[in-house]
Amino acid sequence: MAYAPTAFLAALGRPVLEYINTAGAMTLFLLSGIYHIGTSRKIWQRSLQQVYLIGSKSLFLILLIGIFCGMVLGLQGYYTLVQFGSVGMLGSAVSLTLIRELGPVLTAIMLTGRAGSSITAEIGVMRISDQIDALDVMDINSMAYLVSPRIVASLISFPLLTAIFDTIGIIGGYLTGVLMLGINQGAYFFRIQNSVTLVDVTGGFWKSLVFALIVTTVCCFQGYFTHKRRDSVGPAAVGNATTSAVVISCILILVADYILTSFLL
């Protein structure tokens, strides 16, 4: 009985320490990945391949989600604004919501599911089949070979896809607001031009860069250390690592979004 409070504190502290440990390890992992951008041979060639895998292959998904997101915003925005007699503000509402918040966040979450999970699975399989050991044995730095190009590719792809998401979302809002519900076309675009400032655009841009670093770090980290998982081994570990990567990335994206928004506003 005398040990109960200590045992309780230990049970509480152990996972907290583990989380702090993992957070520290992830930060060092990211820093190592960034450092090796400078030391990696053929970094641009490999990054370009990753831009294709992370960026180009996700384009259709982003277009699809973007257009429907914009259309829903147009619809919801119209029926809310019409109650206040200010449907003319629809362009403003749609564009600011997309550029400031939904564009960066939804793009990052979509890319986590589409590209991040694939990064974790690929690196995880490489780990359990000795491919990463083989790279190290050949004196090929596995961080420089696997992680650094993906960081560069994400830093290029995320902001571009976010910009595409924002643009296509605004067009989606136009489809419902102007073409379906009859808002004046000029008013829609005038409000966008009038309300969106450079600060909004750069804010979204910074967010997408931070999300790119979060997603790449978490997904590469989970794959790279698949063999150190304690809950499973082999192929099951790759599956669990992929699930963890997606869940942790999504949580961190939303947490980082809140922190960044509070600084940017």
């Binding site: 089949s129 000795d130 491919q131 050991d133 083989a134």
Partner: peptide
């Protein structure tokens, strides 16, 4: 390596 460990 045991299974070759070739990069897929």
């Amino acid at each position: 390596f045991q299974d070759g460990a070739l990069l897929g």
